[in-house]
Design a protein around this nucleic acid. Sequence first.
DNA 1: CAATGAATATGACACGATGTCAATATTATT
DNA 2: AATAATATTGACATCGTGTCATATTCATTG
Lengths: 204, 204
Amino acid sequence: MSNDKISDKRHLRSVATRQKLLEAAKEVFLEEGFQKATISQMIKKANIGYGTAYVHFEGKEDLLCVLMENVMAQFYEIAEISFFPKSKDEAEQIINKQTYSFLKMAEAERNMMQIFEQAIGVSSVISDKWKAIREKFIQRISMDIAYSQQNGLARATLNDEIVARGWFFTNEMYLWEIVRNEHHHSVEEIATTITSLYATGLYL
Amino acid sequence: MSNDKISDKRHLRSVATRQKLLEAAKEVFLEEGFQKATISQMIKKANIGYGTAYVHFEGKEDLLCVLMENVMAQFYEIAEISFFPKSKDEAEQIINKQTYSFLKMAEAERNMMQIFEQAIGVSSVISDKWKAIREKFIQRISMDIAYSQQNGLARATLNDEIVARGWFFTNEMYLWEIVRNEHHHSVEEIATTITSLYATGLYL
DNA sequence: CAATGAATATGACACGATGTCAATATTATT
DNA sequence: AATAATATTGACATCGTGTCATATTCATTG
């Protein structure tokens, strides 16, 4: 009766095993990568019964979704950065900051982002999660471009959505390069270079 | 003795079964997608013994590699388009043409490219094939940028490789959008818009 | 506090896909 | 005709998955 569920011993045990499994899953994912990782490995490492895993999660994908929740939330935060520039230079400055934050996520969360990238190629559930993030960014960027065009800062002849998608694509692909540690330049240099190219191309 | 292998009945039979399997594989891939497609299905459709498949190919991935050979060759051809502009306008024109050819491939080979994209996310062999194509393009674009910079046509302050990668990434992501039929604009409009943005940003 | 019921955990099982291999069949050569 | 080389075959072992009937643990009720 008191505290509803908190003091329910069964519920407490349930939460604990769920947590054990999540931690084991993270370890296995990081050791094996998404594809080679198996539920069986995670179950062994978590010291629970085989069937128990399926009580708490639907499978590998579901497990990873939960493990990536906080990272995905951070992306949504970055997408929300406000954008009301009064000049071309201010616009470039804001964009540069956003791009930098975006790419820095790749470094900060590299390990799990590597798993995430592998999973995107395999699991439609995970892929959809990332697509939602992508569309969120593109929608925001489109609005930013439209705002700049209405204020006479940006070339109005260009279709905002096409530009927004193209711009995000550059950012996204660099993100994955950095995640894979395959980038040959500093994140700062990449951010400033692509931002400069973009701002010069779009703004007047 | 005559014609070495052409008139070898055994060899002829071998080539025929290999071909039967390739054709069956293509059908199954297109019906089921890369992930759901199974070797067993292909074998059944080709009317050959189970083990026979593994004599000719190492597995699904290997099969798809062969099926994509001609498409991949076409990408390499597009990458080779010569680039010696004498003005900003001429540069934009050449770039637009190349981008258009590139994106048109997505439409022309949509069905198999869809399978290819799925496979890239799953198979490291296929993924490497695409990475090689990507690096080929980026290398060529880098050279083109350096050429323009040396001739005073393009902003020399920008790092050519960073710009080249960013530019190709935009192209590539649009390619996959078109492959998936998820683009909301005509290929022409996409090509001219992103080219205009790029050329304005890079050229003087 | 015993008994009943609900929530949780368990592992044996059936299924489907893969790749291998010893045996077989077909064709070439001697 | 015998032998060798090449190509084909399907049964088998293996592995990962997801389900489900059963068992266990805990809460509630009379």
